[in-house]
Design a protein around this nucleic acid. Structure first.
Lengths: 197, 197
DNA sequence: CGATAATTTCTGTAAAGACTGAAAGGTTCG
DNA sequence: CGAACCTTTCAGTCTTTACAGAAATTATCG
């Protein structure tokens, strides 16, 4: 398959974006290609289009399936596996967020809790400097944990919104103000942080 | 400076998280260290604590300053530059989001617009296959653009909230339902996507 | 205005990650 | 059941990125 210039530009850019967010470039490119493809593609076709090795595509597809955003589609009369991705951007986004939360947020929360537990069983057994955090550090980590917990709670609520209504929700930004200031009280802090030095 | 085990665990973990999100591990570690440090640190102290080269710290600090989350603090009687980060997690978060939006979202939106412009001036001058996107691809890119624009608009509103009130906002998740369903009409789509194959 | 301290820049090296091509493992079809 | 086809795994290569140490630059002090 030969991509026209605009499509190619998009695929390349998406690969670039992926790598900036810790996603393998090829993985992102494969996903971009599937996203703009009118029909499911088989691995061979993806490989020739993106000009990468067949095996590389195989690995990337596997990765995308682990992320839950690509699935196999079989075509009658064709033995090969074909692949497609979700067409709904909001669903895609939600699935990616779910996965990143599970892989990165949850372990971080767990670690913060662990760091903040008052006393570990073996803290006295080993000599040297004190095992406990100083008050300042403890305070910082507590705040960080609270941050993640707020985010988690918020995200859990957002996840309850049907994907079909998500875009409406995010377009509703202008209602935020009323929601936040019931008595329309003026803001206590400066809304935007100052210019950088 | 010698970190106690819990603090060290946090710093290491934060470095790991950073690299998963496309942030240099050392950069993230330096930031973690400054975040939990009760006082501004100079580069030498950071280097010995993290056991990395002085020059590496220099680069990392420069990077963190470019992100707008670390600033220089001078200590009376000490010629060396000292560094500190913001203590408010919400402000930190906002600054990072601002920067990532500027670096990654905005260019993506620009590219999508470019891909979707009806006709580029030189589209007829070069031979070969058609320069225009097929309808399906065009539709997908339009939806993607709409997604980014919704997100942008929403984020612009959130940014107007004073950082001091942000945590309250994100803790307000449970009010989402009422906001979304004024007449408490049932959702049109399934709220959560099914189990993966 | 040297001398000393502090910081940054630069270059080579080391480590990590991505990718390829070949081989192995499964499937489907005649 | 064997051949053709498709997919995955694996080992080695290549590319990219991160890093250390030296050299150069800048700032501060006597």
């Amino acid at each position: 398959m030969l991509l026209n210039p605009a499509a190619e530009k998009f695929v390349v850019h998406w690969g670039e974006m992926g790598s900036r967010w810790g996603i393998n470039r090829t993985v992102a490119q494969v996903h971009a290609l599937l996203y703009i493809s009118p029909k499911p593609l088989h691995a061979e076709e993806i490989a020739t289009t993106l000009k990468v090795a067949r095996s590389n595509v195989s690995t990337s597809l596997r990765e995308l399936q682990a992320w839950g955003i690509v699935k196999v589609a079989h075509v009658l009369g064709d033995r090969r596996d074909h692949f497609e991705t979700y067409t709904d951007v909001w669903e895609l986004f939600q699935r990616i967020m779910d996965e990143r939360k599970k892989r990165e947020m949850d372990p971080t929360v767990a670690l913060l809790r662990e760091c903040l537990t008052p006393e570990s069983p073996n803290s006295r057994t080993r000599g040297g400097q004190p095992d406990t955090l100083d008050d300042f550090t403890r305070h910082r980590l507590t705040e960080l944990l609270a941050f993640f917990e707020s985010m988690n709670a918020w995200y859990d609520q957002v996840r309850l919104i049907p994907t079909g209504a998500l875009s409406a929700f995010f377009r509703m930004g202008h209602k935020l103000r009323k929601l936040l200031t019931p008595g329309s009280k003026p803001a206590g802090k400066t809304p935007t942080h100052g210019a950088r030095p």
